[in-house]
Design a binder for these strands. Structure first.
Lengths: 240, 240
DNA sequence: TGTACATCAGTGAACGCGCGTTCACTGATGTAC
DNA sequence: TGTACATCAGTGAACGCGCGTTCACTGATGTAC
């Protein structure tokens, strides 16, 4: 099955990279059966070692799960950082890229996502984990900060912290209801990306930002402008 | 422990209300240990019957879990219906009450909430469950419909379906990140209610609704107007 | 360069446990006549 | 009203299973001298 098993004959007494292999195995198992349905023994089996071997690397199942969440937050942060790209080419474009990255992560890494947000791990009680979580959130926070600084003259400047939390909850809501990568995804008459993009644009408009697309350099522009409360027909349908 | 057990001596050979007792027991167990950490046998024990008894009422563990989600959606719908109160005394007030009800449900019924949204049950593949879920969502949809009909003259009327999905994802995002009733709740510098209320108000403003509080009859008005991008200090803090 | 030794990272057998599930059964309840 | 019978909703013993965890162990690796 897994390459670890295939190479079992090739490796000697020591695995060499068991910790990594266990994390990978657990990740595979979680994406197959959810964070509940993965067992320590299963991960060992998948990595091709005896059931006692994992205890050299993790105190117990929970510690393995936390490590996965930890790693998930790190990859999440990296992905958000890359999407944000320090606000290039312009703040709004970069900001929307961050939203899309959030959804992409939830969709493409359901195992990480559920370990991070739905496994029941109390993030707050694990300092390392919380730090990783906060570093990821800090990207959204930084983006909100830059956006807040851009408020047009005459418009009161919104608190960046609030904006960041709002954006986070919108992204998280859309991702966990409609954009997840597993069987629990709810069907939607349009793409989660479009739903979120419209939501964020309306929100920004509510804060006083102009949301008619300025003519700006768009290196890899997505399709057309979202309906955002405009057109009566289209994917939204059901006007009645 | 539970009243079922206390009364065990009193009851005869037949339990009389085992199905109900099992649902209640499972609910208790879920709220203690999450949807993953509840077992069929545990529920039987808690209800004071033999481990074989539940099979008279549920095919397996999954069917019990689905029943709980089902019932959760029904209670959720009832709660939203009551909060919405057909738009009394006015649409905006009632609308905000719906948001608060959403949060209250997530906080007060973590077992139902996680069974409904985080247990990994594919809602889409169970018609009865999906119908219950849709009936709950229909309340939000109806509220959005009424709100959409209220758009001021000159402002394009937003698609109600889109609004409903946006509101749902905002509520769900805030609830699952910050407003949950279990250990996985993330700490926040303000109440989830305030966070959501501000978010919704900004969103509505973005759709063209006036959000300066009209002088309207407020029977049980909540505290003051949320900061909604205004005041630079207060609970939001961290202006830098 | 070789050797002795400490440490590390695995093995594999064993254990107790609780779970899900089945089975023939039995006590209680409802109903036809 | 009584009786016979069908059906329902439990029992309790048994099973196979896989899990988590421990233990003394052993092969491999690193290092001091």
């Amino acid at each position: 099955m897994s390459w670890q098993k295939d190479r079992r004959g090739e490796r000697g007494y020591h695995h060499g990279n068991l910790k990594e292999a266990l994390l990978q195995a657990a990740l595979d198992l979680i994406s197959q059966k959810g964070p509940a349905g993965f067992t320590f023994a299963d991960a060992a089996r998948m990595a091709g070692v005896s059931p006692a071997a994992p205890y050299r690397h993790f105190r117990d199942r929970d510690e393995l799960l936390s490590s996965i969440a930890q790693r998930g937050f790190e990859q999440f942060e990296a992905m958000l950082t890359q999407a944000w790209d320090d606000g290039r080419p312009d703040t709004v474009t970069a900001f929307e890229r961050v939203g899309k990255a959030y959804l992409a992560f939830a969709r493409n890494e359901p195992a990480f996502y559920s370990a991070m947000f739905e496994s029941g791990i109390p993030v707050d009680s694990n300092p390392t984990l919380m730090a990783a979580s906060e570093r990821a959130f800090a990207i959204i926070r930084a983006a909100a900060e830059r956006l807040a600084a851009m408020t047009p003259p005459g418009v009161p400047r919104p608190p960046a912290m609030m904006m960041a939390l709002h954006i986070w909850s919108m992204s998280h809501g859309v991702a966990s209801l409609f954009g997840r990568g597993d069987a629990a995804r709810r069907k939607l008459p349009m793409s989660p990306e479009d739903l979120l993009e419209a939501e964020v644009l309306i929100y920004l408009r509510g804060l006083g930002f102009p949301t008619d697309r300025r003519s700006e350099p768009k290196p890899s522009g997505p399709p057309p402008v979202p309906p955002a409360g405009g057109a009566p027909s289209g994917p939204w349908g059901n006007r009645k």
